[in-house]
Design a protein around this nucleic acid. Structure first.
Lengths: 347, 347
DNA sequence: CTGAAAGCGCTAACAG
DNA sequence: CTGTTAGCGCTTTCAG
């Protein structure tokens, strides 16, 4: 096998080459590749042998031109945020590439402008779309007010979102998301079971619906267990410094014995405060984060964190994609997955 | 502008549409796009107006078919290693995507098999190559014994490596790399300047030439300053647990006051040991890592780390790519870039 | 400087 | 079940 493929011809074999070798017409070879069930067994086998001997693979450009589809999905990527623990894109991208290849798709990366304004990403989408470079998009950043989904909907561009359409609950595009409240509920329950009663929340500002959802998981669990939340919540920016500051204030004013955080970044801020005060994460004050970042995995003594099932998310995204691009079968609009809790030394 | 582009036609405009609108032949439109200098000024302007009005963009598939080039570069990605701090891939990927788009290229992601054996990635390359899906590859993992470079060279597949050809110093493919020894020299010098004399090394096993290079930066700097390295070096696997263990042994047996590590992962292992022994990273024992991962950035009290100039690497990679695919101009075989040191609380 | 003709490799539609 | 015909949208000859 590797012998056969070991020398790349100057110009790769075409349908015609295979057809000649197998003694059939070009169309028959095409059918052998795309609709094998149409061929008689012996013909099929003969063609397949010729294909193997020649190491034939259909020319993508020609196929794309003819079928008006590139078998490529576009994925916009943002710059990594320095100084945060939010690098989970990596994990998602890898899973997406893998899941896509299983259905014959490849992932094409692109970036918008560097301004940070999502409006400026739009031309990136537009060019790809108008040049028929991709069949669909996967968008990952569907926070409230993000124009991408609306924009894509407007031009009837096929896309699947990782993230709920917060803008518009009855948006008609397919989406996949992770139940944030379930995640923080897991964390809060875990802490309560460990005997904690004064459990503080550090989350994002109110305009983040994603953040409000995660917060809801904490507050509803506290209430359900009959625990007070008064004075125990803080809403800040998603930076280590904010988490550090917020946890300092909370410790002074509300004396919590544990913190549930909306992100690993904020949780790291809490660890900073604890280190400064000579408190031990875990034995003295418990902390949980969100995303199971590499930071959570390697920081001493290990940060307990809610882990999003990104592999599953990718699989569901690809399913939705296939449904969008292939023959539509039972259109599932939205899929909500449940995260898990990874317990480590900090709790 | 956004008005004009705001409605995607059922089927995008073609060259013929533009030609009709501008009252010229299809050829002339093609020239207007690809060789504007061939047109008379007034014709050019007329055509460009028609292009803008119609929101015309050349159909990629058709262009690819005709020019036998996809304007796509393939980038193989590995699964994220859990439990390490080695997630710098997405910083590089982002930079690469950006640099590529500046010269009209897009990045296509693919994965090999999941076995971890690099041999199994080869079919991934092969398929992409034989189906003319990509024009070239960027490979990022050129450790000793990795078959990719040889394999690609064998089939005369254009590629650029991020990483030196350790196998074969006079390999003929272009590469870009970062000077690891310069990085650890920076770290070691920094520690010496802070007054440290017993500075230990924790690195990788000897079969990693990359690791040996980083080690050399430490040892040559120590020697140059007249400091002993005897009993101060340890070579282990790249895991947090190994770093923890090695630093424990070194502290007991050689009493170093500082550690230079070959990776942030190992450095985190050292932080674990320090935390367990009630020692403070920084004031009590200094530690430096390598890669300036998010972990280094957010862990208390901040991990001093060598930062690779990945943005520059990407730019150089794309330069080499352009040189490979476009008209060859001055073939620079290899480019070696210098890292910087980011000083934080741990030193 | 502009236009006409040819064809890249493939698949959809139809004919045998 | 297999072969023939046509054409996707573009660029590369080569004439005018």
């Amino acid at each position: 096998m590797s012998r056969i493929l070991s020398r790349l011809p100057v110009t790769p074999p075409t349908l015609a080459d295979v057809a000649e070798r197998a003694g059939v017409s070009r169309q028959t070879v095409s059918n052998a590749v795309n609709n094998p069930e149409l061929l008689r067994d012996d013909t099929l086998q003969r063609v397949q042998e010729a294909i193997a001997e020649l190491g034939y693979l259909p020319n993508r450009a020609a196929r794309n031109l003819r079928t008006r589809s590139s078998h490529l999905v576009g994925l916009p990527i943002k710059a990594v945020e320095e100084g945060t623990a939010n690098a989970q894109m990596d994990r998602f991208v890898h899973s997406l590439v893998e899941a896509s290849s299983a259905v014959g798709y490849h992932v094409l990366l692109f970036t918008g402008a560097q301004t940070g304004d999502p409006e400026d990403d739009l031309p990136g989408y537009d060019d790809l779309l108008r040049s028929t470079a991709v069949d669909a998009f996967v968008v990952t950043d569907t926070y409230l007010g993000n124009p991408q989904a609306d924009w894509l909907n407007d031009r009837r561009a096929p896309f699947v979102a990782f993230g709920r359409p917060w803008n518009d609950p009855d948006a008609r595009h397919p989406w996949v998301d992770v139940d944030g409240a379930a995640g923080t509920e897991l964390a809060t329950t875990h802490l309560i079971d460990k005997g904690h009663e004064r459990i503080a929340w550090i989350g994002w500002r109110k305009d983040s619906l994603l953040g409000e959802e995660r917060r809801a998981g904490w507050s509803r669990t506290m209430r359900a267990r009959g625990l007070s939340t008064t004075g125990l919540a803080s809403r800040v920016e998603d930076t280590v410094a904010s988490g550090r500051e917020a946890s300092g204030v909370l410790l002074d004013e509300a004396h919590p014995s544990a913190f549930v955080c909306a992100s690993d970044t904020l949780a790291m801020g809490v660890l900073h405060t604890l280190a400064e005060r000579g408190l031990r994460a875990g034995p003295d004050v418990a902390v949980t984060g969100f995303d199971d970042s590499q930071v959570a995995q390697v920081v001493p003594p290990g940060l307990t964190s809610v882990r999003q099932p990104l592999e599953e998310v990718a699989v569901e995204v690809v399913k939705a994609l296939a449904n969008l691009l292939g023959p539509p079968s039972g259109d599932t609009r939205g899929v909500l997955l449940t995260p898990t809790l990874v317990v480590r030394g900090s709790s």
